[in-house]
Design a protein around this nucleic acid. Structure first.
Length: 432
RNA sequence: GUCCGGAUAGUGUAGCGGCCUAUCAUGGAGGCCUGUCGAGUCUCCGACCCGGGUUCAAAUCCCGGUCCGGACGCCA
């Protein structure tokens, strides 16, 4: 290993000891008699100081020829120095250029000149060198890590389901067709059917964090053609129970980020407000009424328009659930109420800005499921692999899917979903 | 897909018929400078998206294309 210390592992008290730091040449400031090389690694910055009078000529020459953003390894001695940032500087004995950077750079990494998101996405490898961008992905990591912790503690087993599937079964959203040897196949739009199979499969509580693909030609700041879905499915519990799991999960994730991501939040200028549980529940009827009262053009039976979603969100002002949806605008596997089958045991979990999650208690009766599929205009034959599991002992079960990118962007107050994906896939962007 | 706005050095911008040999910042090259920390300072370098049109004259106006941003639509 070349590195002995990250920048943040060095303290002024280490005065006199020798270390090797590795990173990118953030800036070189040559003042004539004294030259400063600022090296940036994942954690922070280190000032390397060269005095013309005492430094080895070759070392000075090397440093003066380093281009910005080149990768360097610097070995030297820590010197406690009040005039230096962080109270210390590194007096080099050896400076190596491990990866030279060409010039000019495709974007500024120092924060002096902002680049457009489009420019940044074209050179994401350089954009992620910036503390701002890196903080987003460090928080994304914290979120996913805390979700695994939380669900693990709640008895959920992490599973992985196929992303290449045989048929465009669920209807609705468009799928990406692909070639699978001599057959046509599709990229999976959701792990829905597979996680349900595992309820019949006896795993009782499962979750998956994985990619989903949707071939919709949407062009908005909250849609992606490849997104990350956080999905759970659990047996012997109803939609109310999984709503409690969901709101507690969101609260846990926020608390966890607040606790462990303070420096990243600060870099992003975010003051995190931890949502209070339980989240407010409003029925679909109430949601429509709020939208209408706010002057929106929407009728009972419609899915929420973008404007209604914003309008209701503004009225509520915090995370909330919309429950008791019309059965006909929810998928076939949502369980209708026994005494009022036009409504179903489905819910959406909303942030004031957008929908974050939707879920339901599922239909677990084979006959009902089959007729629901047909009612929604789908061909039940394509669902054989799925329906079969309902014929040999399927427990009652419920679950939800939560959009990871939406959770992250609403948490951080980021406007464009592309900002929170390393390499976003949208209508126009397929590379990098 | 519809509507609106936009595209100027590597990056981010000003200019919106002649004053453009195109502004400013950042950057790059080369000087000066022993405490910089968005260093300072001097000199130089580097751009009007593509195609067509209008005009004596186009970065600027018009048409088409491509791409970008926003709103909406689409989105089990």
């Amino acid at each position: 290993m070349i590195r002995t210390h990250y920048s943040t592992q060095i303290t002024p008290e280490m005065n006199g000891s020798s270390v090797t730091i590795c990173g990118w040449a953030h800036e070189i400031r040559d003042l004539g008699g004294i030259t400063f090389l600022v090296v940036r690694d994942r954690e922070g910055l280190v000032q390397v100081t060269l005095f013309k009078k005492t430094i080895d000529k070759n070392v000075l020459e090397t440093v003066r020829n380093i281009s910005r953003e080149s990768v360097v390894a610097v070995t030297g001695n820590i010197k406690k120095e009040a005039k230096a940032p962080n109270g210390y500087e590194l007096i080099p004995t050896k400076v190596e250029v491990l990866g030279k950077a060409e010039s000019p750079l495709p974007m500024d990494t120092t924060g002096k000149v902002d680049a457009d998101l489009d420019t940044r996405l074209d050179v994401r490898f350089m954009d992620t060198r910036r503390p701002y961008t890196q903080s987003i992905f460090r928080i994304r990591h914290l979120i996913l890590k805390s979700i695994r912790e939380y669900l693990g503690r709640e008895g959920f087993i992490e599973i992985t389901t196929p992303k290449v599937v045989a048929t465009a079964t669920e209807g609705g959203t468009a799928l990406f067709p692909i070639t699978y040897f001599e057959r046509e196949a599709f990229l999976n739009q959701s792990p829905q059917l597979f996680k349900q199979l595992m309820m019949s499969g006896g795993l009782d509580r499962v979750f998956e964090i994985g990619p989903i693909f949707r071939a919709e030609e949407h062009d908005t700041r909250k849609h992606l053609n490849e997104a990350t879905s956080i999905d759970i499915e659990a047996s012997f519990i109803d939609h109310e129970d999984v709503m409690v799991i969901l709101e507690n999960l969101v609260k846990y994730v926020y608390s966890n980020v607040a606790e462990n991501g303070g420096s990243y939040l600060k870099t992003l200028g975010v003051e995190l407000k931890i949502p209070e549980t339980p989240f407010k529940r409003i029925t679909y009827d109430e949601a429509i009424k709020i939208a209408c009262d706010n002057g929106e053009q929407i009728e009972w039976g419609d899915d929420l328009t973008t404007e209604s979603e914003h309008s209701i969100g503004k009225t509520i002002g915090e995370h909330y659930f919309i429950v008791d949806w019309p059965s006909k605008i929810k998928p076939f596997y949502a369980m209708p109420y026994e005494n009022k089958p036009e409504l179903c045991r489905a819910f959406d979990m909303m942030h004031p800005r957008m929908e974050l999650s939707s879920g339901a208690q599922r239909v677990h009766s084979y006959e009902l499921l089959r007729s629901r599929i047909t009612e929604q205009g789908l061909n039940a034959d394509g669902f054989d692999f799925y329906l079969k599991a309902f014929r040999y002992g399927m427990p009652p079960h419920s679950g939800w899917g939560l959009g990871a990118e939406r959770l992250l962007m609403t948490m951080l107050g980021i406007d464009n979903i592309r900002e929170v994906v390393l390499f976003p896939r949208d209508r126009k962007r397929l590379s990098p």
